[in-house]
Nucleic acid binder design. Structure first.
Length: 478
RNA sequence: CGGGAAGUGGCGCAGUUUGGCAGCGCGCUGCGUUCGGGACGCAGAGGCCGGGGGUUCAAAUCCCCCCUUCCCGACCA
């Protein structure tokens, strides 16, 4: 009988989540308020996400850079909406070298300010544009309430900051990166997402449009897994970034910024996890196949380890991330449970019976179940099997998301649905902040997305009954 | 930042009410038996009881301040 079981996912989702994060060896709390230490297994997953994103950034012409962690506080004050939005969450360094600093330094909560105040020096002509830069870094935001991966006071992310000569090009850039994020979420992380625009009240401070990807967690709450912003000329004007156009006129540059953080690691856990722990998408799983050798006597041991080593090498030859768990101190049942907790997509069991039959026993973490393969055919089929599991995991998550993406015809239905069922609820909206606020006040939900292209819903606002201007999608969220 | 709960070997906890030798389970180390779904025996190691101050002959235990974590709100990737 299994000892030391996880909390049931359905009974206490937050406790289940924290247990998985800790027991799978992904992260633990750090010593400072809201900080976290990311452990090797969690970091390996983040690295896989980084690779998937970075490959696409390069493919779309972006270059990586690094800007300072600290910059003078007064720089922050130049863009009104931006400073107002971030001031409460900014950490400030006031001492250095054993003395009070004359000029306090802020720890970046995001880098629009330091980058755009520098872009001023880099951009003179339309020939300097577009400027397509990204950086992988950490940022600090003094959040009131924190949770491992999902909201920590310091977090890892990438932030792209681009400058363009025309409004149209900047909007296209923001939408292009939204599409990159959608593709990484769905094709790599197997997380189906909604894309769209944010309402004015949910927009990034200083942005004209914010385009998010929104995912649905297994407890019915939404998670913003990435955002792309069209910033207009706000930052160019605040930091005086002007260029000479083809017509010889001085113009302000157009900006975008976009980011994905290590929060998505939490998103993977909460999208795919079950009562046994994680289920990882093969494309980003640090270990795709684990081989567990089983032997009951020293005589059987040699043959088992030999077959395990052969399968291991053959899989490495097929570019599979494979690991042989030959730890002597644990028995097979313990290893099975542990790798299930860690979410490894396929587990290969090789024991004396398998050696005798020239076969391997393969357990499937995504769909469940075990199946015997001849060693040779498993080696041949493994890459295709992993592809199939990736597809199955996405299909699973999508079925759940689609089943929890509902339409509300009335305010009562919207309110009760958000309160009682959770998930996404779509309803016609008049566009007024008052109506948005009323729903939020009664349900704790917020508008997660509006359609990318505004379209008449052909029905009155579910809240006030005035003519609707578009359909809003609501959910409670992390 | 408001309301609630909690911090005791790596992890999970008891002990605090009523002050008096710091304990239990898991894990860890060694040896042996085991090994196809979370093994067992024997012998060990490991703790300024979150931090600082106070009361007392004596503090994990009582008082004050601070820090951190969890849950519920307000804030957010």
């Amino acid at each position: 009988m299994a000892k030391d079981q996880l909390p049931k996912q359905a009974e206490n989702f937050p406790a289940w989540y924290l247990e998985v994060v800790k027991r799978a060896g992904m992260a633990e709390h750090g010593p400072a308020r809201g900080s976290q230490i990311i452990k090797p297994y969690g970091f390996a997953l983040w690295e896989a996400v980084q690779r998937a994103l970075d490959d696409r950034f390069k493919a779309t012409g972006h270059e990586n850079v690094y800007f300072p962690l600290l910059f003078p506080e007064k720089l922050l004050a130049q863009e009104a909406d931006h400073v107002e939005g971030f001031a409460p969450q900014v950490a400030v360094v006031t001492r250095g070298g054993g003395e009070e600093l004359e000029e306090p330094l802020v720890i970046r909560p995001t880098s629009e300010v330091i980058m755009w105040s520098t872009y001023k020096n880099w951009i003179q002509s339309y020939r300097d544009l577009p400027l397509l830069l990204n950086q992988w870094c950490n940022v600090v935001r003094w959040e009131m309430r924190t949770r491992l991966f999902l909201r920590t006071s310091e977090f890892l992310w990438q932030e792209g900051h681009t400058a363009h000569s025309t409004e149209g090009e900047a909007v296209q850039e923001a939408l292009q990166m939204l599409e990159v994020y959608r593709e990484v979420a769905e094709d790599e992380l197997a997380i189906p997402v909604l894309t769209g625009r944010k309402s004015a009240s949910e927009r990034f401070p200083g942005a004209l449009e914010t385009y998010p990807i929104e995912a649905l967690m297994r407890d019915g709450k939404a998670l913003q897994a990435g955002t792309s912003h069209f910033l207009g000329q706000n930052f160019a004007k605040a930091y005086d970034v002007q260029f000479l156009s083809t017509h010889g006129e001085l113009e302000y540059a157009w900006a975008t910024s976009w980011g994905v953080s290590a929060r998505v690691v939490g998103g993977i856990i909460m999208t795919h996890g079950d009562d046994k722990g994680l289920r990882l998408p093969p494309r980003v799983a640090p270990v795709q196949i684990v081989i567990v050798p089983i032997y009951s006597s020293d005589e059987g041991k040699g043959g088992v380890l030999e077959l395990a080593a052969r399968v291991n090498e053959a899989l490495i030859g097929r570019s599979v991330r494979v690991k042989v768990d030959d730890r002597d101190q644990y028995r097979p049942g313990f290893k099975f449970a542990e790798w299930e907790l860690k979410g490894v997509p396929l587990r290969v069991e090789i024991g004396p019976r398998d050696v005798a039959a020239g076969q391997v026993t393969v357990a499937d973490r995504i769909n469940g179940g075990k199946k015997a393969y001849s060693a040779v055919s498993f080696i041949d089929e493994a890459p295709a099997l992993l592809k199939e599991l990736q597809r199955a995991l996405f299909a699973d998550a999508k079925a759940f998301r689609d089943a929890n993406l509902r339409e509300a015809a009335s305010f009562a239905e919207l309110r009760d649905g958000l309160r009682e069922h959770g998930g996404f609820w779509t309803a016609p909206w008049c566009g007024d902040f008052q109506c948005e606020q009323k729903v939020s006040a009664e349900t704790k939900a917020t508008i997660r997305v509006l359609p990318l292209v505004r379209e008449d819903p052909g029905a009155p606002c579910a809240v006030c009954g005035k003519p609707g201007v578009e359909r809003a999608t609501w959910a409670q969220s992390y």
